[in-house]
Every structure is written in C-alpha cells, then in structure tokens.
Amino acid sequence: MGRRNTVLNMVGFFIFAMAFMIIATEATTYTVGDSFGWNTPPNETFYQDWARNKTFFLGDELIFNISGTLMASDVSKADYDNCTKVVSGIQGSGNGTVFTATLITSGPHYYICPTDDNCAKGQKFSINVESTNSGASTLQPHHSAIAQSIGIFVALALYFVTNAH
C-alpha cells in the first residue's frame, strides 16, 4: 500500500510540474507605451525608456494602440537610426486602431512612427528579443511545449505505474 501512495504522490507531482512548464512557456503581451499608447511622446526618450527595463522573448506580443493618423512600422536599424519614413510590417491609422506584432525572430527589432516627424520626436524604440528554447532563432509553436510536457508526464507515469508491483 505504501508503494501505491508513493506512485500516486509522484503522479501528482508530475501533473503539477507539467502545469508549471506550460505556464512558464506562455507569451507575454505588452501594450507599447502602457496607458499612454502609441502617440506622439512627451519627450524623445519616452518609448526607449518604456522598453528599457523589459525582457522580450519569442512569442511575446506588442500591442500598438494607435490614435489619430499615426502609424507603426517595423524597420531596419538604418531606417530606425535615420528615422526614414518607411511604411512596413505593422501599420495603419485611425482612432482606436490596434495592431499586434508577435515576436517570431530573436535578435534586435526596431519600431518607428513614420508619420510626419514623430520618429525624430522620439516615437520609436528598439528591443532585443531573446530565445527561450536553447538558442533557437525562430519561434517554436507553443503547442510543441505542451505536447512535450504531456509526453514526459505520460512516460513517467507509465514508468511508475508499471514498476509499482
């Protein structure tokens, strides 16, 4: 009877561990500029300051709440540095427009507002996206982490159940 309780305790532990692994692989959603949104900033470092203390990982999402005729573009480093008015990637205009950018490649990413001189006024930021899975450079499907967790759980549970006798 003691061996059976040990097996049940181990199964319970592995269910808990699997749930933790699934939660740990969840993406984070960031609203660019927090409650200020994606607007002409009050100073030139506003968005850089917003991004500075955050760590971005593959699968995270950036939400751009756009108002007025503003736009958001993901651009090259040269276009970022020069505030080149490039309209690419996530874009659009109009009050209440919301754009989501899912971070699917690791490394540096650059975002600007190509409207008027907003980039020069500081409506831009750069981030570095870190990989969460052993140096992979592209996003692995979230479901693969769940499938791996379930597979590990099933294998361990079967091992303990068959060795319980």
Rank of each mutant, 00 (worst) to 15 (best):
M1F: 11
G2W: 07
V7Y: 05
V7D: 00
M10N: 12
F14A: 05
F20H: 04
M21Y: 12
E26N: 14
A27F: 03
Y30N: 04
G37P: 05
P42H: 01
D49P: 11
D49F: 01
W50I: 03
W50F: 05
R52S: 14
N53R: 01
N53M: 00
F56Q: 07
L62I: 06
N65P: 06
S67K: 11
S67Q: 15
T69L: 15
A72H: 01
S73Q: 07
D79S: 15
Y80D: 10
C83G: 03
S88V: 06
G89D: 05
S93G: 11
N95I: 01
T97K: 15
F99V: 14
A101G: 04
I104W: 00
I104G: 07
I104F: 03
G107K: 08
P108L: 00
P108E: 14
H109V: 02
Y110H: 11
F125E: 02
I127F: 00
N128H: 10
E130H: 09
S131A: 11
S134H: 12
S134V: 11
A136V: 06
A136S: 03
S137L: 14
T138N: 00
P141S: 14
P141M: 05
H142T: 07
H143F: 11
S144R: 03
S144E: 06
I150S: 12
I152E: 00
L158W: 05
F160H: 07
N163W: 10
A164R: 14
